[in-house]
Structures are given as C-alpha cells and as structure tokens.
Write a protein that binds this DNA or RNA. Structure first.
Lengths: 249, 249
DNA sequence: ACCTCGACTTGACCTGCGTCAATGTGAATA
DNA sequence: TATTCACATTGACGCAGGTCAAGTCGAGGT
C-alpha cells in the first residue's frame, strides 16, 4: 500500500470539513459524514479528532488493506469507491460490500482485517491510527454508542444481504442492488434516477452471488423492457416502481 | 407471546449463576455466558444487572418476538435453541441465525426488531427491559465496549455467511454448517463429535439457501460416504478433516 | 493510425439444485 | 391398537443460472 499521505492541515480538517468546503457541513460528502459519526461530536472534538488523522489518496485498484493482516487503522472514505471482499482458497470471491464517500471502514475494531479492501476508482480517505482512535473513544462514551449503533446498522444490512443471497432470483437481486445503491447515492447527491456504477459487472456479480454473464444478461433484459437505461458510467432508472416491487423486502 | 415469567430471585441470579449451579460459573451454560458478556463484569455489577432481569420459559414454536414490532427487550438465552429469521412477502424465509445457550438477542439496540425469533425446542431466556439495560450501559462504558465487540463479531459471522450463500456449493454449505455448529457446541459442552441438531431440515435449508430435499440428500450422501452418521437428535462426525476441507474458508 | 487489453455483451449448451410427488417414520393423542 | 401429523427421505423431471466460447467496444499506449 503506497498511498500519497499528507497530514491534514488546520483549515482543511479531515472530518468536520472537506477541502472544497466554504463552511462547516457544506459539501455533499460532509453532509454524509455528518450523518454517520460527526453529528455526535462538538466542534472542538472534531478539531481534536482531526489532529489524529491523515488524508490518503489511492489509485484505482490500489489496496487499502488485506484480509488477515493486522488491522492498525480506521478509514473514513471521502471520495471515490472501495470494494470489500473475501477470497476463497480456490479464487472464488465474495464482495461483502462497497464503501462510498462518507462510509467508515474498520468499525469492527478486531485484531485483524476480516476482508480485503481496494479502491475501484481513484479514492481519498482519512486514516486514523487505531490506537489513538481507540484511546479517544475511551474518553468519549457517546461516540462509542454512536459507533455501536453504526455497527448494528451494518449487521442489519448484512442480514438483508443474506436474504438476497439465499432466497432471491437473479432479477430480484439486481433490482435490489440498483434500488439500494440509488438510496445510498441519494444521501450524497439528493434524489436522482441516475445511478452511478463505479464497480465492474464482475464486482456486482461477486456481491450478488451471480456470474458476470448473468448480471449482464439481466441488465440488458431490464433495459429492453424499458425498466432502466444503461449509460457509460452507470444506469438511469425509468421504472423505479417496478424495481422496488422486484426488490420488495 | 405468553411465556412463563418469574422475577429472578437472589440466589438464582440470571446472569452470574444458573439455577442448577453449585457456585459461580460452574455449569456449562454459565461458562458460555461468561465468555460472552459477564466476564466484563464485577460480582456486584452482576448482582445489579440481575435485578433488572426476569427469567422466561418458551414452549417449542413459541414466539419470542416478531419482525418490525417495537423492540423493548434484550434476551440472554440460557437453555434450548431459537431460530432467527426474516420473511419475504410471498412466504420465502431466510434464517439469519440460531441462538444457543449463552447467546444474546437484541444487541442491535434498534427501535424495531429486524427479524423474527421463535423457540425451536423448549427454551429459557433472561429478559432485560431495554430501557433499564440501556441506562445501565450508560453508566458502564466498559460494558458498552464489550457489547460493541460482540456486535462486531456478529457482523463478521454474517459476512462469512454471505460467502457461504453467495459462493459455495450445497455440499460445502452443509459441511460449513456442521463444523460451525460443532464449534459452537464445543464452547458449551467441550470437544465432541456428536453434534446436536435441534432445528429441522427446513430450518437448515432456510439458513443455507437450500431446499429441505437438497439438505436431506446431501446429508444422506455424506452418511453413505462414511463422513457422518445421522442419529435421531443430530449427527455424529466421522471424518472431521474432510468436512473441514469442504468448509475451508 | 494501429495495437493491446480489460470490460462488456451475446449465444449455445450443460448441470446443480429446485419442484413435484410418493412414501417412510416416530411421537403424540385417543 | 389405531390415527394423526410433522418431519424426513427418495425418485423423476425441469429450469435458472452457470460454463464455455466468440465477438464488440473504448481507453491507453506507441
């Protein structure tokens, strides 16, 4: 992992503000981060946490961390997209999630990473040393509470994914994926029918327990049926209602 | 939910001791509970937590709680077995886990239950009101930390299950299930090749994303190949090495 | 302009597991 | 002892989605 590292400077704090922000919680990314952890913090606490962090840049396909390696950091993704996956000895891969701007990595606080993480597109992230972060948490019980509620939410999402993988058809999986991704981008960019897909079809397949070919076929079919339009960097949703019916809990 | 309820009495504390125990942490169940939460507690804290709890008994197939209902309790299973599952509108079911003696339910601390829970065999559990439990946690940051680490562990297990559901064959799923269950019973009863299966084949199928028929066929085949022996209440493992190879991470 | 390479699509074929249906089995009840 | 009912097993058959193979397309690189 050879990412560009730069200590965050006062005036461009890693958590409270983003580099192109004109004030507190102004840009889309910060709005998301505010949703996840920062709204549990006072301004001076943000400043303090900030001093623990450094901003890193990763090129596409560059590794943030690998499975089973000792885990010494916590990351907050601020731009780009990251895929999180587990590998079987024979090469089969299961993507367990995608991290988008605002998402945290390493919430588990376990000794070793339980999955690999690498950048899909050029990505920037704030890194905190686990030790400093952990010490800081010890002093702030309300943060720990927030952290726990975030982990619980992740657990709930993982269980939803178990339903998708165990009990849904290929078409339902794709629909659920598109709707879920739309909802996540909405928190970043507001309501929109234009869903960006930074990940490859292979990534989507490995997330949904399908092959590339099946993902491609189903998406082509949905497009043929005027349900979506496939565009270079993603998908435009035409018939959201139909997709939601397919993805129905 | 009409379970037999009885306020826990001093002398038969819900968490630190089990009814048939002759001293602290003596019986198997307590050993497990000690592993999960209680080892983070001082004796007087245990006693205090105890006053917040009541012991409940559930008959087989009785409901502990239902999906989407407001969640007002936390449970600690002390005997029996509980299945946790989500339902799709059309009746398809995904079992997201089984709770055995020592396991906690409701760690998520979310407003509403995200899955259903009902007893497979006659079950006893300690119930804590969420409010009292939550207040108690506020006063004990180290407990919150423990809780968070338990939730993280659950998340990790859920991700392992995602790999099983997304990328493994029926035979590998069954092998992983049997090995996983053996490891859990080992923490209760010590090393053993006799794996109890309190749940039905249907439950196993709904957990592994398979049909009853497939579960039955694969288990019959494993038995024919001298890998396991099917006994009335479970399975005896003959060729653990082979199962572990099949279940390999 | 040409080449390369990785991502994507599409078609033909195959198979693991689901579906449907029949039967066995043991525990509970009368 | 007979009856029932939930659970389990087994066989025959079909299909959703996997596998294999052959393109197409576009972004870099030279």
């Amino acid at each position: 992992m050879e990412a560009t590292a730069s200590k965050a400077l006062a005036g461009s704090p890693a958590l409270s503000l983003c580099p192109n922000s004109k004030g507190p919680i102004e840009c889309a990314q910060c709005r998301v981060r505010a949703l996840s952890l920062c709204d549990a913090l006072e301004p001076d606490e943000l400043h303090e946490l900030d001093r623990l962090s450094q901003t890193l840049s990763f090129a596409a396909r560059q590794t943030l961390f690998e499975q089973d390696q000792p885990s010494d950091s916590v990351y907050n993704v601020t731009a780009g997209a990251v895929r999180l996956y587990k590998l079987l000895p024979d090469g089969r891969r299961q993507v367990v999630g995608f991290a988008l701007p605002g998402d945290f990595l390493g919430l588990a606080m376990s000794e070793r990473n339980v999955f690999c993480a690498d950048a899909i597109t050029p990505t920037t992230a704030c890194r905190f040393s686990r030790e400093a972060y952990s010490d800081y948490l010890d002093a702030k019980p309300h943060l720990l509470r927030r952290l726990h509620s975030m982990a619980s939410h992740e657990l709930s999402l993982a269980q939803d994914q178990m339903v998708i993988l165990g009990r849904r058809t290929a078409e339902e999986r794709i629909a659920a994926f598109l709707i879920g991704l739309r909802n996540r981008w909405m928190r970043v960019n507001g309501n929109q029918v234009h869903v960006l897909l930074p990940m490859t079809r292979q990534d989507i397949g490995d997330f949904l327990g399908l092959t590339v070919e099946t993902v491609s076929r189903i998406m082509t079919r949905l497009a043929r049926e005027k349900c979506i339009v496939i565009v270079p960097d993603g998908v435009r949703l035409l018939d959201v209602a139909r997709l939601e019916r397919l993805a129905e809990v």
